[in-house]
């Protein structure tokens, strides 16, 4: 049983009337972790809770064995953080800024400067490191943000929307950097993104949030495997009658929160519609579950039901 990298137990956080994180409980092991969900799903709030920058209204958290509320400096000393928003000092050079953040992270001056050169070379800014940050493009700024997050070689790095604002080639280069980081032994990262396909092929674990709720978490392979071969049905009407009808047609439906999953052999799709007709319900969606994080998310999240034209 691997030691938990992050433990979250019954955590809720509310801003005014908005519940950003709602009774969240999850345990994540070391590795590459995707924190995915749409904008406003509570990803950034969760990261800030894990960093100890916010206090939960209820519940408790643990990061690398430290409680962010009781020992925030213990947590922050072991993690790197790449915020989503622009946060760079425009009047500093890339090397000056990264070395400065290294010193603030606790590196001696000479070591911080040496590490800053190393990480700027890693992110592909070796040539531009002496230029002022104000002269950097969006892609270069994102790279500097990544560099400052890893300059002190933390065992865990929180990356909040690292591909935001990047063009396709810039995005692919950033993902390649993250893949390289993921190959480092004893290093983990939490990749927060609303671009679900960014997490595909990059993360070995995933935590899916929607409106502050956890809709799925665990190893990506296991989650995807549990959905492969199944079909997803969403209906409007009496679910119990529909389930009974499916059983009568020899199918074995698995009712989920907002949908029904069922394994359909070739040629049995018709049985679903016959069951629906008999139960007097309307089939709103019928499709195969797809083996991607994005597909997994879409299968789990409640999609808006279109207005009935009649």
């Amino acid at each position: 049983m691997p030691v938990a990298l992050i433990e979250v137990n019954g955590v809720s956080k509310r801003f005014g009337t908005v519940e950003a994180v709602s009774n969240l409980s999850v345990e994540l092991s070391p590795g590459s972790i995707g924190l995915v969900g749409p904008n406003g799903s509570g990803k950034t709030t969760l990261i800030r809770l894990l960093l100890g920058l916010l206090s939960p209204d209820s519940g408790n958290l643990s990061v690398l064995g430290c409680d962010p509320q009781r020992d925030p400096l213990g947590v922050r000393g072991q993690v790197g953080y790449m915020p989503e928003h622009d946060c760079l000092s425009p009047d500093l050079s890339g090397i000056g800024f990264v070395a400065h953040m290294g010193r603030v992270s606790g590196l001696p001056k000479e070591v911080a400067i040496s590490r800053a050169h190393d990480v700027l070379e890693f992110v592909g800014l070796a040539e531009e490191r002496y230029r002022k940050i104000r002269e950097y493009s969006v892609g270069m700024r994102q790279r500097v943000k990544l560099a400052q997050a890893i300059v002190h070689d933390p065992p865990l790095c929180f990356l909040d929307e690292p591909t935001a604002g990047l063009d396709p080639s810039g995005r692919e280069e950033m993902l390649e950097l993250l893949r390289a980081l993921g190959r480092l032994p004893n290093h983990s990262f939490v990749l927060s993104t609303h671009l679900l396909h960014d997490a595909d092929g990059l993360c070995d674990q995933v935590l899916m949030l929607d409106a502050g709720h956890c809709i799925a978490s665990g190893p990506v392979r296991e989650l995807i495997a549990s959905h492969e071969g199944e079909s997803v049905i969403r209906i409007q009407g009496d679910t119990d009658r529909f389930l009974a009808s499916l059983l009568q047609h020899g199918l074995t439906p698995k009712p989920m929160d907002r949908e029904i999953r069922v394994e359909l052999a070739p040629g049995t799709t018709r049985a679903v519609f016959e069951s629906a007709a008999e139960a007097g319900v309307q089939v709103r969606y019928l499709g195969r579950s797809v083996a991607t994080i994005e597909g997994l998310f879409l299968a789990r999240v409640e999609l808006p039901v279109p207005e009935d034209p009649t």
Partner: peptide, 16 residues
């Protein structure tokens, strides 16, 4: 494109 993980010329260091 294949990128190698960062290598630090300065080894592990005690934190200030």
């Amino acid at each position: 494109m294949s990128i190698s993980a960062p290598r630090y010329a300065a080894g592990p260091s005690a934190r200030t």
